[in-house]
Lab assay of single mutants.
Amino acid sequence: KLATQLLVDLAEGCHTHHFNSLLDIIEKVMARSLSPPPELEERDVAAYSASLEDVKTAVLGLLVILQTKLYTLPASHATRVYEMLVSHIQLHYKHSYTLPIASSIRLQAFDFLLLLRADSLHRLGLPNKDGVVRFSPYCVCDYMEPERGSEKKTSGPLSPPTGPPGPAPAGPAVRLGSVPYSLLFRVLLQCLKQESDWKVLKLVLGRLPESLRYKVLIFTSPCSVDQLCSALCSMLSGPKTLERLRGAPEGFSRTDLHLAVVPVLTALISYHNYLDKTKQREMVYCLEQGLIHRCASQCVVALSICSVEMPDIIIKALPVLVVKLTHISATASMAVPLLEFLSTLARLPHLYRNFAAEQYASVFAISLPYTNPSKFNQYIVCLAHHVIAMWFIRCRLPFRKDFVPFITKGLRSNVLLSFDDTPEKDSFRARSTSLNERPKSLRIARPPKQGLNNSPPVKEFKESSAAEAFRCRSISVSEHVVRSRIQTSLTSASLGSADENSVAQADDSLKN
């Protein structure tokens, strides 16, 4: 292990032709098999893994070397290190390495390699500790012929580059190093199909959405987006994914797998022009299946994007999809995704031109529960009313008269009656009930004795009459309010007539 670390330190600071010789020695160290011998017992696995620490030291050392060589000349050094790393990870899946030390190597290698970024000039870069990406002036992410390196360097940008540029090249004859992302992409596909350690798979799935944002990485080298989509959909639809995973937390289920895969599918929607129609349908189907899991909100957001990006695919699945959405409970976490999906859909009339009455009724059935102001915040309630109004205007004229009683009944049950079921009123009724029952229970537990009763009969009569009056008032709060309003209006009217009579009498006395 110490000798391997010494080789790594020497290679990191070497800029001459001896660098390749040092890498040859490190490569021989990495070539050791990580498969346990067949006769190895389970209690000896930890000791055997400790004997392979030099392999881990070599791989982690290459990660440090690549981070240094990416910004220094010659660029061919970075290319050689990158290829060695990718080849080593491929061996893991070729020979099915399952030892804990092998999983640790893959975890740290993917953690580093999935941080690679590219700008519009195809320059590769890595983020620093502050998250700012520094791009290399010597390494690009696409394949290029050595003699055409300078031509590639002087080509115009596709868009303004992001991030601070690296140091300027030493001279005009500098050759750019090619670090094609397709090599890593193929290893990522192998990981999605064969990885057995949940920690490694979770890391890859968590980092892929951010990497897919940099389309330069994908399009400048032959990366098959179709295969990526197929691998992701197979993970969700195939039963073998959960069987092969180990190291998963207790209670791990298909729902947890959906939570990890759906963000990658959402990021892949922007590549729909490069996906086969069959793959697009598979993607939409997987998102529909996710509606029954805890990732339902993410799936609804993804389907909203699909309705804009892939209208030809979503239009066929939309009638059944809208009916499925009615089975989702009206909760605060689902309110905004569902209502925004319906609001977006209302502005795309070509998608729902074939809707029948059942689909329009489903839209109103989804939106009406969110009009309850005692359960949802003001934004959700306003958005629900907006969706109902928009869809009522957009639905066909023959359907409107049939939906009017349905909508008014839903609004009455969710908006008007919600004020009668407020917690304050319920607590008031509970308190009044307890007050009504309390005197009775006290009389049963403690019967009054005439000799020891010091309270006069008049006081008892007053208290009983007050309790009886309170019971009468607490029967119905709404009736009490109505009666008080009527009494107030009658009182004001009587006072007004009394004032008029007094004024008339005063005038008569003055005349006399």
Rank of each mutant, 00 (worst) to 15 (best):
H88A: 02
S237F: 07
R123E: 02
K56R: 11
R134S: 07
K193I: 09
D226P: 06
S104Q: 14
S230I: 06
G206Y: 11
V204Y: 00
S76D: 11
R134F: 05
G131I: 02
A50N: 13
F135C: 03
V64K: 15
R134W: 04
I218Y: 12
I218M: 09
Y93W: 00
P209N: 09
V59C: 06
V140M: 06
I101C: 06
S159A: 11
G131Y: 03
L242Y: 09
V64G: 15
T220W: 02
K129Q: 12
F252Q: 02
V140F: 08
P209G: 09
S49W: 03
K56D: 02
C229V: 09
S221N: 03
L66C: 03
V59T: 07
L126K: 04
V81P: 03
K129R: 11
A248H: 08
K215C: 03
D54P: 04
G206C: 08
K215R: 09
A75Q: 06
S159I: 13
V133M: 14
L242M: 08
G177R: 05
P157C: 11
I65K: 01
G247K: 06
T68A: 08
V55G: 01
K215H: 06
K240Q: 13
T241M: 07
R213T: 07
Q227C: 10
L62K: 00
D197P: 01
S87P: 00
P160V: 11
G149C: 13
S155N: 12
L70C: 03
V81D: 00
Y143C: 09
S237A: 12
P222T: 05
I89A: 01
H92M: 01
L192D: 00
R106N: 00
H95E: 08
S159Y: 12
N128T: 09
G156I: 11
R117W: 01
P222E: 10
S178R: 10
L192Y: 00
G61R: 01
I65Y: 01
R207P: 00
A118G: 04
S224T: 04
P137T: 11
V225E: 01
L212A: 01
L91V: 09
S159M: 10
C139E: 02
V216Q: 09
L99N: 06
K94H: 11
S96A: 11
G206P: 01
K94M: 08
P180I: 01
P100I: 01
V200L: 02
P157Q: 12
I65E: 01
Y71E: 03
S76H: 10
D130Q: 13
F135G: 02
Y93T: 00
S51D: 09
V133A: 05
L245C: 03
V204L: 02
F135I: 05
E243Q: 11
F135R: 03
P180L: 02
S104T: 10
T154N: 11
G247S: 08
Y82P: 02
V86Q: 01
Q227A: 10
G177Y: 07
Y214A: 06
P74W: 02
T154G: 12
S103K: 10
L245F: 13
L236S: 03
R80M: 05
Q190P: 01
L236M: 10
R186A: 09
S234K: 13
R175M: 13
T98Q: 09
E147C: 11
P127N: 04
L236K: 00
L203W: 04
T98S: 11
K69G: 01
R106G: 00
P161T: 10
L115P: 04
E145M: 11
T72A: 09
G177Q: 09
V140K: 07
S182N: 08
S51N: 09
S178Y: 13
R117C: 03
R175Q: 11
A231C: 09
M235L: 11
R123L: 02
D226I: 03
L192R: 00
K193V: 09
K215P: 08
V179K: 02
T79R: 12
G149K: 07
K199N: 09
E83W: 06
S234N: 11
P100C: 03
K152I: 10
G166L: 13
P239S: 11
P127M: 07
K240W: 09
C223Y: 02
F185N: 02
L236G: 01
P157A: 12
P249G: 11
G163N: 10
A50C: 10
L52T: 05
M84W: 01
R186S: 13
E147L: 07
P157L: 10
R244A: 04
T154V: 11
G61K: 02
G206E: 13
G206V: 06
C229A: 09
Y97S: 02
I65Q: 01
A102L: 03
R175H: 13
C139R: 02
L232S: 00
K202C: 04
S237C: 10
C223I: 03
F252K: 02
P239A: 09
L70E: 01
P161Y: 12
V140S: 06
L192P: 00
S178M: 07
L70M: 08
V225P: 05
P127T: 05
L70S: 02
S104P: 02
K94T: 12
T72L: 10
C223S: 04
L91R: 13
E83I: 06
S237W: 11
Y97F: 06
V86W: 03
A78K: 01
M84F: 02
M144T: 09
F219V: 08
G156N: 12
K193W: 13
L91A: 14
L184Q: 03
R80E: 02
A102M: 02
P127I: 06
S211K: 06
D226N: 11
Q90E: 12
Q67M: 03
G163V: 13
M144S: 09
L188T: 10
H77W: 04
Y181C: 03
D226L: 02
T72E: 09
E195S: 00
T241Q: 07
R246C: 09
E210T: 10
E151H: 13
I89M: 09
L184R: 01
S182H: 10
G206A: 11
R246S: 09
I101S: 02
I101Q: 02
M84L: 12
S104M: 11
P164C: 14
A231D: 05
S150K: 08
C223Q: 03
P160H: 13
H122Y: 03
V187C: 14
L188Y: 04
R106I: 00
L217A: 04
R213W: 03
G125A: 06
P239M: 10
T154F: 09
R246V: 09
R213H: 06
L176P: 13
L63V: 07
A58G: 06
V179T: 05
I218W: 10
L176A: 13
L242V: 14
L158T: 10
L66T: 02
E83V: 06
L73Q: 14
H77N: 06
Y71R: 03
R117T: 05
D197F: 00
C233S: 04
V133F: 14
F135D: 02
R186M: 06
H122Q: 03
L192M: 06
L62Y: 01
L201N: 00
S120I: 10
V86M: 07
V216T: 14
L73M: 10
L184F: 11
E243C: 07
G163W: 11
C233T: 11
F219T: 14
S224M: 04
A231K: 02
P180A: 04
E210M: 09
P137H: 11
I65T: 04
K69C: 02
L189R: 01
